[in-house]
Computed example of a mutant assay.
Amino acid sequence: MGKELVVKKNTLPIPALSDTDGLDSYIRFANSIPMLTEAEEKELAERLRYQQDIDAAQALIMAHLRFVIKVARGFSGYGLPITDLIQEGNIGLMKAVRRFDPEVGVRLVSFAVHWIKAEMHEYILKNWRIVKIATTKSQRKLFFNLRSSKKRFGWLNEEEIQDVAKELGVQPETVVEMEKRMNAYDMAFDAPIEEGDDAKAYHPSLYLEDQSRNPEALVEDDDFEQKTQIKLQEAIDELDERSRDIILSRWFSDEKATLHDLAAKYQISAERVRQLEESAMGRLKSSVAHL
């Protein structure tokens, strides 16, 4: 049994993708690798699947690097570095090679396209916006299909919204909401203020209030809590001795007593204990509610 194929980033001896020159070198390198014939591909895939031949896996991956570049160019309109898209696509290619079955009768490129695009989709959704615009499977499908539609239409009018909703099988309101998210832009929360008398700044830190740390609200909350505790204690003290013991044993003790425990203690039924507890709780709630 040979070594197991493990998918990792940056494991292939290929040129770096860190800059433009690196990208050009990478593309030339990928295009210089001969494409495999169907027979060659099947032989390599069989060696990988049945003999765990890592060299065969590498040969399959290297021969399809050019296809990853082609797919990555199709996603270039999202404003993300194509080098990053290629790297993510290569991860998808490696996953596809690991799962490819030569006995199915399809070429690797047809099988791998799903895995390559899936990795690129995930990368785009994670990085296209600081605030994630699509989290569910249906939202992701709508995101990519709607972006494709907007390339044809631009801003959608009411008729186009209805057409897109019908085509994608979603509600028109869902299309409108996704379009709003897609056309929103990211803004720094506390961007530096430009110097000059006429300079204006509109970043969120200047107009968004943090109500959670409002001193007035904190004092009011603390005062209300103290009054509630005092009122609750007074209400408990006003209960008869048995009802008070039931409430304290059932709600305020570290080791809470059961209905049967209290029934045995007072030699009454568990149902009677429950009735006393319910009556006492009603009086406590009524006392606290009048604050």
Rank of each mutant, 00 (worst) to 15 (best):
S32L: 11
D190S: 14
L248T: 03
D21Q: 13
A118K: 02
P81V: 11
L291N: 14
S149G: 07
E4L: 05
F67N: 01
Q233V: 07
A63M: 06
D53W: 06
P34F: 08
Q211Y: 06
V113K: 00
D197V: 12
G196P: 12
P192T: 06
F189D: 13
S25L: 11
K256I: 06
L48Q: 00
K151H: 15
S249I: 00
F144H: 08
A264K: 15
E88L: 08
K137P: 02
E195T: 12
E277P: 04
M187K: 13
S243M: 13
E277N: 10
I91C: 02
A165I: 13
L291V: 02
A289Y: 12
D222N: 06
D163Q: 05
K42T: 08
R129D: 08
Q171W: 04
M35Y: 14
R272G: 01
P13Q: 13
L248V: 03
E41W: 02
A264W: 10
V109L: 10
A199M: 09
S25A: 15
G2T: 09
E41G: 02
R140D: 00
Y207A: 12
V97I: 08
A134P: 01
L65S: 00
P15F: 07
R28G: 07
I27R: 13
R152M: 08
W155E: 09
Q139D: 03
Q52R: 02
I246M: 10
D19N: 10
M178G: 01
A235I: 01
L146W: 04
K265G: 03
Q171T: 15
D53M: 06
I161C: 12
L156H: 04
D53Q: 07
V113E: 04
D55V: 05
E220W: 02
L156F: 15
R274M: 05
Q139M: 08
G79M: 09
A134M: 04
K151G: 11
F189S: 15
A191K: 09
A188Q: 14
S205D: 08
I82G: 00
R283V: 05
V104C: 10
K3Q: 14
D223E: 15
D245N: 07
Q139G: 11
K8S: 10
K227I: 01
T83S: 10
R213Y: 09
Y78T: 09
L262Y: 03
E119N: 04
Y50D: 13
E271S: 09
Y123G: 01
A30V: 01
R129G: 05
N127T: 06
E195D: 08
Q229M: 11
D223Q: 04
P215G: 06
K256V: 06
S148N: 14
L36A: 03
I246E: 02
D198N: 13
I236V: 11
F189H: 15
Y207F: 13
V219R: 01
D21A: 15
F252V: 04
Y202S: 15
D197P: 12
K180S: 14
T37L: 10
A118D: 01
I124N: 01
N31R: 15
Y185G: 13
E43A: 04
R98N: 14
Y266Q: 04
L142W: 05
L168D: 01
R47W: 11
N90S: 07
K141F: 14
R99I: 07
E179R: 00
Q52I: 05
I133L: 15
D221Y: 05
N31K: 15
A199H: 14
K132N: 13
R147Y: 13
F100V: 00
I61M: 03
D222V: 11
I33A: 09
K141H: 13
